[in-house]
Design a protein around this nucleic acid. Structure first.
Lengths: 199, 199
DNA sequence: TCCTAAGCGGAACGAGCGCCCCGATTGTAT
DNA sequence: ATACAATCGGGGCGCTCGTTCCGCTTAGGA
């Protein structure tokens, strides 16, 4: 984004990269609630150093979320290109697995203490756009029912991540994924009440 | 549980009931993170009064969760008795709707900062037992696929609550419920890979 | 090698919150 | 009505955490 007006001193650049890497790992493990002091300690720097490179804790978190979203978008586009019918499912279950390994991303995506669209509008738009593409492809291929839109898929991702986090053992999620998949592959709601949910 | 060795003074009993009621509403709105001072203010008492009736914030939260679980269990048993085939679905979507109105219960159930089985073992056992009953009934009635157990249903509830919380508008969840329902009603995994999820 | 400014670390500040303490208040038995 | 004990309220303690400050260190050009 912002081109550095002057190159960072070598040690400063090293520290910045180290903080970013450690912060990514720490946010993934502990979520956004982790203290800055903890990140500084793990990175072997003082808290002041973290704050010189990132003005607030929030901005550090944003930098990491933006990077992770970019990775996810690229991966999903590749997989959808290789197999349009399976692309959405691959993406969905990959996002679900993130629930186990990346709490920070999961929180950001679920909007827990973080407004993705407000904080990173560009990243959010690209993410949403990518989802629209692979959803359309899957629907065109006939592998996903056609009465769902991008917002529904986002909702399902939030749910899948919560489930995956709740179930520590990934083995056990293979009992739940087929249920979701069967639901998504089912034909659109028919006139009888069979697929209507009246609580 | 503990019989009062001596009856509470009239004003004390009134305050206790008031705190319990207000705490329930507040935990539902804001979750377990809400400060005790906030509950005390809303109840029109001092923080000291809250702590005389409940030794810790945690114990107050537990009392409320236990009560809510009891209500949910009763409701679910009634609905399952009225219609065994629909009982599980009614329960599932009712729990999902709790995601919108009762953040405290949702957090407790998802295990966010709260170990349900450790804190309220009896309530947890009765809850799990009830779920086993209505799941078995639904499977016997043929409305739910037979390759799922209670742990899978718990997982789905956590996911549904997260989805419902993510989607502020209940209207929109009626686009997602049918998907889950279709997945649960689907036949057991067949030999072909159609319902297998390979990420 | 020397000088200067960029960079560093960690003490310290202020705000938020769980929980405790104690003088003031008030219900209730007599 | 009186006295006593139960109860009340809210200020305060101790701790956590985000952020700032500033004296010390050191990279790197001359």
């Amino acid at each position: 984004m912002t081109e550095k007006s002057r190159p960072l001193r070598a040690d400063a650049a090293r520290n910045r990269a180290r903080v970013l890497q450690v912060a990514y790992e720490t946010f993934a493990e502990e979520g956004a609630g982790v203290p800055i002091d903890e990140i500084a300690r793990r990175a072997g720097v003082g808290a002041g150093t973290v704050y010189r490179h990132f003005p607030t804790k929030e901005s550090l978190f944003q930098a990491i979320v933006a990077d992770r979203l970019q990775q996810v978008v690229e991966r999903a586009r590749e997989q959808a290109a290789a197999d349009p019918g399976e692309g959405l499912y691959a993406f969905l279950f990959h996002m679900a697995e993130q629930g186990a390994t990346d709490l920070g991303l999961t929180e950001a995506f679920a909007g827990i203490g973080f407004d993705l669209a407000a904080a990173l509008p560009d990243a959010e738009k690209e993410f949403t756009g990518m989802m629209a593409e692979i959803l359309t492809q899957a629907q065109r291929a006939g592998t996903v029912r056609s009465d769902l839109d991008v917002a529904d898929i986002k909702t399902l991702i939030v749910g899948l991540q919560a489930m995956r986090r709740f179930r520590g053992d990934s083995e056990l999620m293979h009992r739940v994924y087929p249920v979701i998949r069967a639901g998504l592959a089912a034909p659109d709601a028919s006139p009888d009440g069979a697929t209507d949910a009246s609580a």
